[in-house]
Design a protein around this nucleic acid. Structure first.
Ligand code: SF4
Ligand code: SF4
Lengths: 167, 167
DNA sequence: TTATAAGTTGTATTGTTAATATATCTTTAA
DNA sequence: TTAAAGATATATTAACAATACAACTTATAA
């Protein structure tokens, strides 16, 4: 169970822009910072632009910046915009209505409620809430490029056991 | 965003068994009922057995049945057992700790909380809560095999817009 | 005691789709 | 008028869920 990296990358872009409020950033700079495919980011940024999250300016000296202040950018709204469906199980897809239990499956209703709970949690937060106080430059300095950090694995909380299974 | 059909199939098996409480069902019968791969179901049933959800008996006249009463089978527990990870984004995977924002990303914490909200909602329900009152036979009779039903598209609630995006 | 109906286990293949790459645009400030 | 930026479309790759295949073990009904 996961969200696409496409959506996470979009969030990273917004976080980056929130950290560099006084200038135009550009795609190359961001893809370099996160070490992800520039081509992929281009599409993500384009969609962020068309959905009204970032302002893009072409041409020399162009780049991108947040279209609204971080307090006005809702995380739930963003995830809904970037994630391409929320079909928790097959029967949520209007084109796949062939489960024999469908007419009144209690499970479907439960999963819908759980999905809503997930999104409502995201609706309760804005970019300002999740943005770090640090700028990318500071982060870059405090970062040892190679190995992982020890402070990281807090708060996986309920989602334990897992790993292995399937196949 | 979706859960694997592997997990949904597991839930379907339990629902089916809950509907046929007074006898042993078998895998072939269930895979026929839902029109899904028998081979795939075999693995799912095996895992359901090893995790203590169903009792399987081999040999002629064998089959499977619920190991505990439906009121004792928690949906959240089941989903945790079947889904093979809850790595909402890359950084949740202990082997992928290379996001530059990692040491203290507020987004990660938010996503963890949202994931917990999702699972807690599932923890609040048991198989008894989601099982229909009907038996598979009744369902089969009331079901026109081909076209979709009209009563179905209730409660997608918050998860609207979507469709298209990406690529 | 034996034939057969069940589940068990391991591996290989297929299909889908997210992720990435390539290439050619258009726009615009210096 | 050129170089630096984003826009757009298409093609390729990679990951992994889903499925298929094959050979095994167990148990019981005849
Ligand atoms: S079992 Fe219920 S939730 Fe799962 S696909 Fe069928 S109708 Fe949907
Ligand atoms: S941006 Fe935050 S949530 Fe996303 S991968 Fe990086 S650390 Fe994790």
């Amino acid at each position: 169970m996961q969200i696409t990296s496409y959506t996470d990358y979009a969030l990273r872009v917004l976080l980056y822009l929130a950290m560099t409020p006084n200038r135009q950033a550009n795609i190359t700079e961001i893809s370099d910072f996160f070490n992800i495919s520039r081509n992929h980011l281009v599409k993500i940024v384009h969609q962020l632009g068309s959905k009204g999250f970032v302002k893009t300016t072409r041409g020399k000296g162009g780049g991108l910046s947040l279209q609204r202040p971080p307090e006005m950018i809702n995380i739930g709204e963003l995830v809904r915009s970037m994630e391409n469906h929320f079909n928790w199980v097959e029967c949520f897809d209007p084109t796949q209505q062939n489960c024999r239990l469908l007419p009144a499956c209690g499970l479907k209703q439960l999963l819908a409620r759980a999905g809503d709970a997930y999104l409502q949690m995201l609706d309760a937060a804005t970019l300002a809430d999740v943005a770090l106080g640090t700028t990318p430059v500071e982060v870059a300095q405090s970062e040892a490029p190679a190995t992982a950090h020890s402070e990281c694995n807090q708060n996986q909380s309920l989602t334990t056991e897992t790993q292995e299974n399937n196949l």
